[in-house]
Amino acid sequence: MSQMTYLGAIGAAQLEAMQADERVIIFGEDVEANVYGTTGAGKSRQAEGDFLQLFGRDRIRNTPISEEVMVGAAAGAAMTGLRPIVDLSYSSFLYLAMDQFVNQVAKNRYMFGGQASLPVVFRSAMFYGLSTGAHHSDRPYPMFMNVPGLKIIAPATPSDAKGLLRAAIDSDDPVLSFEAVPLWGSKEEVDDGEYRIPLGVARTAREGEDVTVVAISGAVPEALAAAEALGDEGISVEVIDPRTLVPLDTEAILRSVRRTGRLVVADPAHRTCGAAAEVSALVAELAFDALRAPIARVTTPDMQIPFSPALERQLYPTRETIADAVRGVCGRSREEAMA
């Protein structure tokens, strides 16, 4: 075990996978210089652990700023024997390759009757809450949840980032990894050895009795902080982190809600047709009888992301807004809680 950051854990998973299998290659913008810190030790080109030094230019490739061909070529390479990891840097840039994601990556195996498999990982980082403005702050995973054929991971801790990414690279299906930049610096003890966290298995981040909070990506630490505060008010909160959005661990969510009878979903994505909407619909369909209160969603409103910190900060789920929602489904106001 050693202390690892979220970003360091991603780099560690990539390093392991590159060492384990020569078919694994990484391409993307600025990966040779390790600009985003996942293709090297993070110090300099001479530093031990620099991927370009370790693996050479065949396997670590800078690309032009051409998302459409990056994604399409990765699909073609995956269909013919390579196992590419594509670093798309910002999640907001995925839209430039939408045709390739939706019409090629997601459909080729299915529409060719199973002749193709696409072992490829598309990594991108969600730079929200950092005053990067409307063109860099997107959390677009729900759009891709709506495209059958893609698998989607959204790790919230360093340990999960390492284990999920490794499983994603091992998967013979295309996986999109949405990494939350606000979590990049978070640290914890991480297993140095090789391990994989199977896709589609949720993690219970905190056990509790009264309310289930399903929290996604950057909302997980906020939900945990809310749970801690609510404990002092006598509300016992269970926090479930799905970790994988496709396939979604529906059973784990239902199991928890059947026990607690209450559900709050905290999701940094937009509200309409978001991940929270999907989780809420599943619980309403499959565990309605267990619900003792209406489901509450804490999401980013259907609003574009403004630049000024004074405007931006209020938009995402926070420990305060999550705690308010939990109190709400417990029939308690904040004033009552304070009394």
Partner: peptide, 22 residues
């Protein structure tokens, strides 16, 4: 044959990727 495509131009990047594998 790695696939025909109903989207005009959409299969061209696939060919580039197959060439990278080769």
């Amino acid at each position: 044959s790695l696939g025909e495509s109903g989207i005009v131009g959409s299969s061209i990047p696939i060919a580039a990727g197959a060439a990278l594998s080769s």
